[in-house]
Amino acid sequence: MENTVIEITRFSFSISSKAILKDISLNVKEGEYISIVGPNGAGKTTLLKCLDRIHKGGSGDIRIAGKLLDKYSQKELAQKLSYVPQADGRISPFTVYEFVMMGRYHHLSPFSSPGKEDKDAVHDALAITGISEFAERFLRTLSGGERQKVFIAAALAQGAKVLLLDEPTTFLDPKHEADVHRLLARANRERGFTVVSVTHDINSAVLTSRRILALKNGAVAFCGFADKFMNNEILQKIYEKSFLFVKHPQTGKTIVAPEVP
């Protein structure tokens, strides 16, 4: 039943002859929730961008739903993958509704207005993310946390079943962080979205995802189940620092405790 949606085989990628990703292999199954972690500059964002062809080229194979990435047109790829970039602080002058509707681009033809299917998808995405009430507001009048939900809503409206997220909860306050985690978990469990999320937050990676891919210096440093990741030896090798561990009061899972300096 479980199909492989992303299949990365010995993939390497360089930017101006500097190797950013080295010999990466990873399979992601349909409906999986996987987090990509690693120190700054490890190549996490680059890997996501290569998957969505924001970066082109590289050696090795990437297959999406069994088909080589190069064989997709950009519009076809948009039906398979959607991407939520890191917040870059630039805010485009659109309303929430206009912005989320743009997720439907691959369904629209020039001069056409959005059809019923498009409107339904947008309303649905606004409802899942809990931002229906903001629909007519301009993006720049929203807080960072609300805006992040809009970005996720636009990705959901796109209709692709694989969500790629780049640090979706960075810069968010605890409430919005929890909201985003909850809605991603719901999209994953109830709607069958496959979630691939880049994060610096080791605890949320462990608590939200089944598997973790850790990168260091562009290479895979760990790939496996989340509970196996919480091991001082592994973490120390990746982050070059030691960690303290505690049990999560709700789940009993091992998590990292902040250190007192």
Partner: peptide
């Protein structure tokens, strides 16, 4: 003829690419 594309370009190149432009 390119109005949809212009809208998406305005949200940023990365988003435009991921939406299929």
């Amino acid at each position: 003829y390119m109005t949809h594309e212009l809208n998406l370009m305005m949200t940023g190149e990365e988003i435009a690419i991921s939406r299929g432009v």
